[in-house]
């Protein structure tokens, strides 16, 4: 799931080399922290947060098979 978020973020930003995803276990939730270059934060959030919402929808679907909750946080 982290690899997928990394791939998707790289498709959207100007500096793909700066994309990094950290995994963090919080209770029974897997939290993915997405880091991008400062100038690219807006690109992974999108107008009215629509890119971030789309990324979260994909991440949520990815958790279904693994039977766990996955959350995406944009850490910048």
């Amino acid at each position: 799931m982290a690899e997928l978020v990394e791939f998707l973020a790289r498709q959207l930003v100007d500096e793909p080399d700066e994309v990094r995803v950290e995994r963090e276990e919080r209770d029974d939730v897997l939290v993915l922290l997405l880091h991008v270059a400062p100038n690219d934060v807006g690109k992974v959030i999108g107008r009215q947060g629509r890119i971030a919402r789309a990324l979260r929808a994909v991440v949520r679907a990815g958790g279904v098979r693994e039977n766990r909750r996955v959350q995406l946080e944009i850490a910048g």
């Binding site: 998707l8 498709q11 959207l12 930003v13 100007d14 999108g46 629509r50 890119i51 919402r53 789309a54 990324l55 929808a57 994909v58 949520r60 679907a61 279904v64 098979r65």
Partner: peptide, 23 residues
């Protein structure tokens, strides 16, 4: 699972594909 409730997931995939195309 790819379509999602009310098409949420497939709409999200489509949105990302369009955003990626217009990078």
């Amino acid at each position: 699972l790819l379509i999602g409730k009310h098409g949420q997931t497939i709409d999200a995939i489509q949105y990302l594909a369009n955003a990626s195309a217009r990078r």
